[in-house]
Design a protein around this nucleic acid. Structure first.
Length: 468
RNA sequence: GGCGGCGUAGCCAAGUGGUAAGGCAGCGGUCUGCAAAACCGUUAUUCGCCGGUUCGAAUCCGGCCGCCGCCUCCA
């Protein structure tokens, strides 16, 4: 039986104990990308927070089934395809491919299913028809709208009152026929030049919200355990999903709503016009490592605004370096056989604090604090020569265990260097032996420029790759 | 206007009644040919401000100030 896991639920507005519908299994749905452009670091913050949640649930022993939708038909994709003079499919395929490349780089674990909207139109039509039959929806000029007045609980997620919604809202030019300005479209009537599908209630294309309801029900049935996304989705997107799904099935749609706060840049909302808009590709081309970016996006609590700055990114890389440097010591030094009780105790306590922290609504800062406390203790023990071989094995395996959740450690702690560089390092060691420090320092400077840092220790010279 | 969040050292950040974790950066020292890494010491008598409750408050209550988000299919 997994340990007690506390998580904030937007629906109740408080922290609750997580109990899935079926013991040991978690049905998780996360709002995926609209593939009309490259995803930006704000998107990735959400995906990484969701990834942390998923990895931690698995760490606790749950089987997690994860579905993430791909929105490949909406206003933006249609406009984009038209602007570039390509087909919708061709246009979205490009950004879908980029999305998968990016999440791979950031080590965001793959979902089990990635349904595309355009491949689930039949399911959407079925639900829309059902809503029409039950009187929750109505037709106007070929479009189908959801009547929010028919769903008494409308607003329960976002805590918005229906009456307040009538004030000060804009009515879109193509939706002026709605009964109520807040009713939202389930199906948009066919327009010239736009892709369309056939439905009993007329040709057209689906609205956005119906997509998530349909696809989550397809994989999970009427009720799922976790539905996640950015806070901006709370209203109207997730509110509308609840209205559609619960009206259709008559059953609770989602048990735990998990929402990730926004990322801002230098204290301001990210926007293209301000020039503070970064995609993963932008940062990688500046030389930052995906691991440092992941570490930064991971290291702030998911319900707090994360202020992205380059200073913070450098700090993340430096923090990560402290971890890998410590592991480097454990991997490269020689240790005597045996073990010490103190190390065993430290590992046990660290593992407990790490797990307890994350089990407390994913308190990542506290969990990382446990890791750094262990590192400090470990470095000191190294300094004093107190660590034994079995101790280092235990510590290392603890780190690799934690990394199943964090996924920030490098593939290999010790990296291979090309032969010519190894030659240079040997040449430098010769020079040092001969007290020819001019030569040795010149070689060290040269290698530094090439991204390799040399460290002279009692056991000889060793090297590391510089990571940004 | 409605709803919600935030304000802890130079920066990031944990801590929700018991006397301020951790990371980065800085400074002094040890080690080093010099560095790097690491270690030791140091950096908030104080948690936006003002009151109150309490033996005791960053934590609870009241007021004020500042910042931000949503209420526009933007994660």
């Amino acid at each position: 039986m997994p340990k007690k896991f506390l998580i904030y639920n937007t629906l109740s507005g408080r922290i609750e104990e997580f109990v899935p519908l079926k013991e040991g299994v978690v049905k998780m749905y996360t709002c995926g990308p609209t593939v009309y452009d490259y995803a930006h670091i704000g998107n990735f913050r959400s995906y990484i927070a969701e990834d942390l949640l998923k990895r931690f649930l698995r760490f606790l022993g749950y089987k997690v089934i994860h579905t993430m939708n791909i929105t490949d038909v909406d206003d933006k994709t249609i406009t984009g395809a038209r602007t570039q003079g390509t087909s919708l499919k061709e246009f979205t395929a490009k950004y879908e491919k980029a999305f998968f490349e990016d999440i791979d780089k950031l080590r965001i674990s793959k979902a089990d299913y990635y349904p595309r909207a355009t491949e689930n139109i039949d399911g959407m039509i079925k639900i829309i028809q059902g809503l029409l039959d039950k009187g929750y929806a109505y037709e106007k000029e070929g479009s189908i709208y959801y009547r929010i007045s028919s769903f008494p609980e409308y607003g329960k997620l976002s805590k918005i009152k229906k009456e307040d919604l009538k004030k000060g809202i804009r009515i879109e030019s193509d939706e002026y026929e709605k009964e109520n300005a807040r009713d939202f479209s389930l199906w948009k009537a066919k327009k010239p030049g736009e892709p369309f599908w056939k439905a009993p209630f007329g040709e057209g294309r689906p609205g956005w919200h119906i997509e998530c309801s349909t696809m989550s029900m397809k994989y999970f049935g009427p009720t799922l355990d976790i539905h996640a996304g950015g806070v901006d989705n709370i209203f109207p997107h997730h509110e509308n999903e609840i209205a559609q799904s619960e009206a259709y099935t008559g059953k609770p749609f989602v048990r735990y709503w998990f929402h990730i706060q926004h990322l801002i840049v230098n204290g301001e909302k990210m926007s293209k016009s301000k020039g503070n808009f970064y995609t993963l590709r932008d940062l990688l081309s500046m030389g930052f490592s995906p691991r440092a970016i992941r570490y930064l996006l991971l290291s702030a609590h998911y319900r707090k605004i994360l202020n992205f700055t380059f200073d913070a990114l450098y700090q993340a890389a430096a923090s990560l370096k402290r971890i890998t440097d410590f592991l480097f010591e454990l991997e490269t030094k020689e240790f005597d056989e045996g073990k010490t009780g103190e190390a065993e105790k430290m590992v046990r306590e660290t593992r407990k604090k790490f797990t307890d922290s994350l089990a407390d609504d994913l308190n990542i800062s506290s969990a990382m604090g446990a890791i750094f406390n262990l590192i400090h203790w470990g470095n000191k023990a190294l300094e004093e020569g107190k660590l034994k071989k079995e101790d280092t094995r235990k510590i290392k395996s603890m780190f690799y265990e934690f990394d199943r959740v964090l996924a920030v450690l490098p593939e290999q702690i010790i990296e291979e260097l090309p032969e010519e560089i190894m030659e240079l390092i040997k040449k430098r060691e010769e020079a040092r032996k001969n007290m020819d420090f001019a030569t040795s320092d010149a070689i060290r400077d040269e290698l530094f420029k090439r991204g390799i840092i040399l460290e002279d220790t009692k056991e000889g010279t060793r090297w590391k790759m510089i990571k940004k």
